[in-house]
């Protein structure tokens, strides 16, 4: 494949997709470092980075499809897979964090949420005990 033989509009589209992807991945990582507590940090990579990765995969799919004469479906599979699993991972991590009662940054709305859910959960658990 010669990257220079592509039509200009395609090149611009691909560059935009890849750049957008890279940007979101980077933003996700910066968020992971900069945000104040776990629950805010959770948002950065699971949302921004996943989106960024999706954009990169889309770009790669288009590029490979155009240059290799044939639709490349691998990337679609990976994207699909990521979009299914990322929320579940986030959910599981959040549960772990709630279980560990991690500190919440001041100013979080519904600050009592964590305690609330725990209380409710314990209530439910105790009602199930024989």
């Amino acid at each position: 494949m010669n990257l220079n033989e592509l039509p200009l509009w395609l090149e611009i589209l691909l560059s935009a997709l890849l750049l957008l992807g890279g940007l979101f991945v980077l933003i996700g990582a910066i968020g992971l470092v900069r945000l104040p507590d776990f629950f805010t940090r959770l948002h950065a990579p699971t949302k921004a980075s996943t989106l960024g990765l999706g954009a990169i995969l889309l770009g790669s799919m288009v590029l490979v499809s155009v240059s290799h004469d044939g639709v490349s479906l691998h990337e679609l599979l990976i994207t699909l897979f990521l979009f299914i699993t990322a929320p579940v991972s986030a959910h599981m991590m959040c549960r772990a964090a709630l279980h560990q009662r991690l500190k919440i940054a001041p100013g979080t709305r519904n600050g009592e949420y964590q305690g609330l859910t725990l209380a409710r959960q314990q209530e439910r658990d105790s009602s199930r005990l024989p």
Partner: peptide
């Protein structure tokens, strides 16, 4: 915290 580290690993 450990969940932080798991998050980092996932990312």
């Amino acid at each position: 915290s450990t969940p932080d580290r798991i998050l980092a690993l996932d990312t």
